[in-house]
Computed example of a mutant assay.
Amino acid sequence: MVLWIAWRLVDSGYFTASRPSVVTIERSEAGDRLLVDGKPYLVRGVCYTPIPVGKDYEYNFWGDPARPWITDGALMREAGVNTVRFYRMGKNPAEVRRVLDELYSKFRIRSLAGHYLGFWSWPPPNYADPDFRARVKAEVLEMVRQYKDSPGVIGWILGNENNYSFDGKVQRWSSDAIDAMANHEDQRRERARIYYRFVNDIAVAIRRIDPNHPVILGTGEVKSLDLAKEFAPDIDILGMIAYRGPGFGNLFRQVRQKYDKPVLMIEWGADSYNALRRKPDEKAQAEFVKLQWQDIERNAAGGKGEGNSLGGTIFEWTDEWWKGNENLPRTWSVQDTAAHWNHAAYHYDADVPGGMNMNEEWWGIVRLDPKEDDEAINARVPKKAYKELQDLWTK
């Protein structure tokens, strides 16, 4: 009876661990493993931004008195989720610590804490500007100081798809010296050099403050990883964002050849709206998600692949109803069925006229019901992808 009561108190969150976890990386012939307090830890996670119907990214869920993370945490635990990824932390450290601590103490769900490195700032980022770099670095180090002792934190993610500012055409930045270069490839490589050196500088500074948690470089795809290897050698883990359809092809081998860091898939998944049939398609999403996770797991230590996968955080937990028209608040209460970009590898609706088949507001593995439940938040309705992952993660 005493043991049962003690277990219930721990399970309810009555007791909260007071010490931070020690997270290390083991690299051997068997593959790469993440160790949390000395025990192997395969990340089975979700990207977590619980924005309710009618709100946008400015919504402060950290301070919501309804505490949506409690409802979500219980549902996550049932699915075998052990990790959440936060793209950015809230403005109030006390609120953030409460969320981190309650997710861990009540549900044993650990957290990856992120910082955009100013990528979505206004004015747009300029990594060639020393003052901009200094400000962003100070923000990151303050984040680390604030949350490094939270028992649920297991790592720091720097950036998201920031490399698309030189590998793509998103949030482009430059300098007079870069503009003076005649060759566009030289310009790209110089931007990459500046950015990766900056990230490496932050990683070194983080390690001085917090030697117990790895630093993760968030990057989209593999194009400039050869430059990351040269200019960001002090990164611990590559946080990979990749959407390649039902699997990842040779991605894990490409990382091995270009950068040779352990890989954590920090964004992957599929949307649940079929642009060709013009209706929700949870079955197709579930089939893709299953194959994607099996590929991630196959490339983990002991699997038949490259052995450099540490797991992943699927994009995303719940649908976001604001993304289709982020500048029109009146549209945030209706889930947009318009497609916003195209990707032929998502073949279940790739044949739609015009080719636009990717629906930004339908990526969650949990659907939001606009009506509120007993906890005064949008009711959560697990999709088939949730149940597929539950089968995979709780077996």
Rank of each mutant, 00 (worst) to 15 (best):
R277D: 07
L238Q: 02
G220L: 06
R19G: 07
N327S: 10
P125Q: 08
R193L: 01
P40I: 05
Y127N: 00
K106Q: 15
I266L: 01
F231W: 15
S333Q: 12
N308L: 11
G312V: 00
W321L: 04
D319N: 13
L42H: 04
N92F: 09
N378A: 07
Q294W: 01
R367T: 01
M358Q: 15
R97Y: 11
I377L: 12
I154M: 10
R172F: 04
R244T: 00
Y104Q: 02
K229A: 11
N92D: 14
A203W: 06
K304S: 15
K387C: 02
R145P: 05
Q187L: 06
P40L: 08
E29L: 10
L328E: 08
A376S: 12
P20F: 12
S224R: 01
M1G: 12
W62N: 06
K137E: 05
N183S: 14
R27M: 10
V43F: 10
G155N: 03
Y386W: 14
N250R: 15
V381H: 09
A300E: 05
P68V: 05
L158Q: 03
Q171R: 13
V99I: 03
L217Q: 00
F15M: 08
R133A: 02
K290L: 11
G152V: 05
D131C: 05
W363C: 01
F166S: 05
R44G: 00
W156K: 01
G312Q: 03
V144Q: 11
W122G: 07
T394E: 01
A345H: 06
Y243D: 09
V81L: 08
R110L: 13
W4N: 06
P246H: 08
Y195W: 14
H213I: 08
Y87Q: 09
I209H: 09
W173Q: 03
Y243N: 09
A182P: 02
E185M: 12
R277L: 14
V99P: 04
Q254T: 13
N274C: 10
A6R: 10
M265A: 11
S333C: 05
D32C: 15
L310G: 02
P382H: 10
D374N: 11
P52T: 02
R97A: 12
V10W: 11
V199E: 00
Y87W: 14
